[in-house]
């Protein structure tokens, strides 16, 4: 019985590691997600290898087809690409906010 439990434990760990690497390494689903005021997303971002949640200029485009707009739409603080959104920079049209940046200068 003890041996069986050990086998199940090892199997579970292997499956977990495979899933972890597949989801958080290969797929990297939280790249560029807004993490500001979203602690769960922030935690999931930081679980991704080579990803950090940090503050910086974020692309703001009011194009419904753009990835950044889709992500911004899910964030409560987004009031459009204008001064109503806190952190909006008029000169380069980007928003200073916290998001999931990956890769760095790798």
């Amino acid at each position: 019985m003890k041996k069986k439990m050990l086998l199940i434990l090892i199997t579970n760990i292997i499956i977990f590691l495979i899933l972890y690497f597949y989801i958080f390494w290969i797929k990297s689903p939280f790249i560029a997600e807004i993490t500001q005021d979203r602690p769960i997303i922030k935690a999931l971002c930081n679980m991704q290898v080579a990803c950090h949640s940090g503050t910086g200029p974020y692309t703001c485009r009011e194009d419904p087809k753009s990835d950044s707009f889709k992500r911004l739409s899910r964030w409560d603080g987004f009031k459009g690409c204008n001064n109503l959104t806190i952190g909006y920079q008029k000169d380069d049209g980007r928003i200073i906010l916290e998001y999931c940046g990956c890769g760095g200068w790798m």
Partner: peptide, 25 residues
């Protein structure tokens, strides 16, 4: 078991924060 592992891992990664970073660009 997965739940346990994620629960264990979450504070680990959640605490991993260095400084404000914008290293994607």
């Amino acid at each position: 078991l997965l739940t346990i592992l994620i629960v264990v891992y979450l504070p680990f990664v959640y605490s991993y924060e260095v400084n404000p970073l914008n290293n994607a660009t």
